[in-house]
Amino acid sequence: MLWDANSHNERGLELVDRGWLFEAMREFNKAIDKKPKCADAYDNLASVYAEKGQPFKALKLYLTAIELDPKNAAAHHNLGCFLANFGNDLAIEQYKSTIKLEDDFPDVHLNYGMALAEVGEYKKAIQLFKTALDIDSSDTMARHELACVYLELGLYHKAIKQLRIVINEDKKNVNALVDLGICYTKTGFYDEANLTFKKALKIDADNFLGNYYLAALHSLQNNKEEAIKHLEIAIKQDKNQIREFIKDDSQFDSIRNSKSFIKLNIF
Rank of each mutant, 00 (worst) to 15 (best):
Leu2Arg: 09
Trp3Pro: 01
Asp4Glu: 06
Asp4Asn: 13
His8Leu: 00
Glu14Phe: 12
Glu14His: 12
Leu15Ala: 07
Gly19Cys: 01
Phe22Arg: 14
Phe22Met: 07
Glu23Ala: 08
Ala24Tyr: 03
Met25Asp: 01
Glu27Arg: 05
Asn29Val: 05
Asp33Lys: 14
Lys34Val: 01
Pro36Ser: 12
Pro36His: 11
Ala39Met: 05
Ala41His: 10
Val48Arg: 06
Gln54Lys: 12
Pro55Met: 08
Pro55Phe: 01
Lys57Arg: 10
Thr64Asn: 12
Asn72Pro: 02
Ala75Lys: 06
His76Gln: 13
Asp89Pro: 00
Tyr95Val: 03
Ser97Phe: 05
Lys100Ile: 08
Lys100Gln: 07
Pro106Lys: 09
Asp107Thr: 11
Asn111Cys: 11
Asn111Asp: 07
Ala117Leu: 00
Val119Glu: 14
Gln127Asp: 14
Leu128Asp: 08
Leu133Asp: 08
Asp134Trp: 02
Arg143Cys: 03
Ala147His: 08
Glu152Gln: 09
Glu152Arg: 15
Leu163Pro: 03
Val166Lys: 12
Asp170Lys: 15
Ile182His: 15
Tyr184Arg: 05
Thr185Pro: 08
Lys186Gly: 04
Phe197Leu: 07
Phe197Gly: 07
Phe208Leu: 15
Gly210Glu: 09
Ser219Phe: 10
Lys229Met: 12
Leu231Val: 02
Leu231Met: 12
Leu231Gln: 04
Glu232Tyr: 09
Ile235Lys: 15
Asp238Leu: 01
Gln241Ser: 09
Arg243Cys: 04
Phe245His: 14
Ile246Trp: 14
Asp248Phe: 10
Arg256Ile: 06
Arg256Phe: 14
Ser258His: 12
Phe261Gly: 04
Phe261Asp: 08
Lys263Asn: 13
Leu264Asn: 05
